[in-house]
Simulated assay, not measured.
Amino acid sequence: MSSSAPEAPNAPNVPDRPDDVPAGAAVSPDGASAAEAPSGGGGLRERKKRRTRTSLIDAALVLFLAQGYDTTTVDEIVAAVHVSQRTFFRYFATKEDVVTGFFDEHDQWFADRLRERPAGERPFTALFETLRMVLKEIADSGPEDAERFRRIRRVLEAEPALKAAQMARYERTEGLLARIIAEREGVDPVTDPRPEMVVAFYSGATRVAFEHCAHADVWDPKDIAARVEAMVDVASAILRDWI
């Protein structure tokens, strides 16, 4: 790995390497090397791993927005966080995973919350109520998480190279949500197309909402949530009046 990678602009949560940590050692964002991390239980270890992962995401996003996704290298990302390539690939299989992985976590959280919706709630309502919960969680999670969400949305909208990865993620998520809706409704998704269709309608409506936000230069999670709320009303009217 080249040691002459350009220094990244200041990024949130990016640690400095302590002088006594050998080059190439994985460093958690609190400054301790992975080898020297306290053994205070799996909970502490997992928190350190999550902070390191978040530091890599934040540094990558700063670089992507400053100089472009295609021209940013993994070498530059790890140099900004003072960790090795090996550490990077411990968390991400590819560079694009830095961006799409953030939403993979939210997709899983979404699926778990959808399963918990009231049993009598109609499928379309359950999907949108779960989305409201996810957006509220992001909006209420603090300025750093909200800024991270904003940066990721901007990178996704600006980089055509990530469109294919996003479409693959949509396919995976829609399949999972259709299976959950089928379970909730007690139908077989193999022979009954309704779960897949209602999820497709929901996904289309949310994509339109997010695209409208991007075109209007709206990135704040609370503003996005308000616009998605308005899109829910439009979608409901379409179901009532156009279908």
Results as ranks from 00 to 15, higher is better:
Ser28Gln: 08
Ser28Leu: 07
Pro29Trp: 08
Pro29His: 13
Pro29Cys: 14
Asp30Phe: 13
Asp30Gln: 12
Asp30Cys: 15
Asp30Ile: 11
Gly31Trp: 07
Gly31Ala: 07
Gly31Glu: 03
Ala32Asn: 11
Ala32Leu: 14
Ala32Arg: 14
Ala32Gln: 11
Ala32His: 13
Ser33Pro: 09
Ala34Trp: 15
Ala34His: 15
Ala34Lys: 12
Ala35Phe: 11
Ala35His: 12
Ala35Gly: 10
Ala35Leu: 11
Glu36Asn: 15
Glu36Val: 14
Ala37Pro: 00
Ala37Phe: 14
Pro38Lys: 08
Ser39Val: 00
Ser39Pro: 00
Gly40Ala: 04
Gly40Val: 01
Gly40Asp: 04
Gly40Lys: 07
Gly41Ser: 03
Gly41Val: 04
Gly41Lys: 01
Gly41His: 04
Gly41Asp: 06
Gly41Cys: 02
Gly41Asn: 03
Gly41Trp: 03
Gly41Tyr: 04
Gly42Ala: 12
Gly42Pro: 04
Gly42Phe: 06
Gly42Ser: 09
Gly42Arg: 11
Gly42Met: 05
Gly43Glu: 10
Gly43Leu: 02
Gly43Cys: 01
Gly43Met: 03
Gly43Tyr: 03
Gly43Val: 04
Gly43His: 02
Leu44Thr: 01
Leu44Gln: 01
Leu44Ile: 01
Leu44Lys: 00
Leu44Pro: 00
Leu44Ala: 06
Leu44Tyr: 10
Leu44Ser: 00
Arg45Glu: 01
Arg45Ile: 01
Arg45Met: 02
Arg45Gln: 05
Arg45Gly: 02
Glu46Leu: 15
Glu46Phe: 13
Glu46Gly: 10
Glu46Lys: 15
Glu46Gln: 15
Glu46Tyr: 09
Glu46Trp: 14
Arg47Met: 13
Arg47Asn: 11
Arg47Leu: 13
Arg47Cys: 12
Lys48Gly: 07
Lys48Val: 08
Lys48Leu: 15
Lys48Phe: 09
Lys49His: 04
Lys49Cys: 01
Arg50Trp: 12
Arg50Leu: 14
Arg50Ala: 15
Arg50Gly: 09
Arg50His: 11
Arg51Pro: 00
Arg51Ser: 05
Arg51Leu: 12
Thr52Trp: 05
Thr52Ala: 15
Thr52Pro: 03
Thr52Glu: 14
Arg53Asp: 11
Arg53Thr: 14
Arg53Glu: 15
Arg53Phe: 10
Thr54Gly: 03
Thr54Leu: 09
Thr54Asp: 12
Thr54Cys: 06
Thr54Tyr: 08
Thr54Ser: 14
Ser55Gln: 09
Ser55Tyr: 00
Ser55His: 10
Ser55Cys: 07
Ser55Trp: 04
Ser55Leu: 02
Leu56Ile: 11
Leu56Thr: 03
Ile57Gly: 01
Ile57His: 04
Asp58Ala: 12
Asp58Gly: 07
Asp58Met: 10
Asp58Pro: 07
Asp58Val: 00
Ala59Tyr: 07
Ala59Asn: 06
Ala59Lys: 08
Ala59Glu: 05
Ala60His: 02
Ala60Asn: 09
Ala60Asp: 02
Ala60Gly: 07
Ala60Glu: 03
Leu61His: 04
Leu61Glu: 07
Leu61Ile: 00
Leu61Thr: 06
Leu61Met: 08
Val62Gly: 14
Val62Ala: 13
Leu63Trp: 08
Leu63Gly: 08
Leu63Lys: 06
Leu63Asn: 05
Phe64Cys: 08
Leu65Asn: 11
Leu65Gln: 10
Leu65Lys: 12
Leu65Val: 02
Ala66Asn: 11
Ala66Gln: 10
Ala66Pro: 00
Ala66Tyr: 02
Gln67Leu: 01
Gln67Asn: 09
Gln67Pro: 10
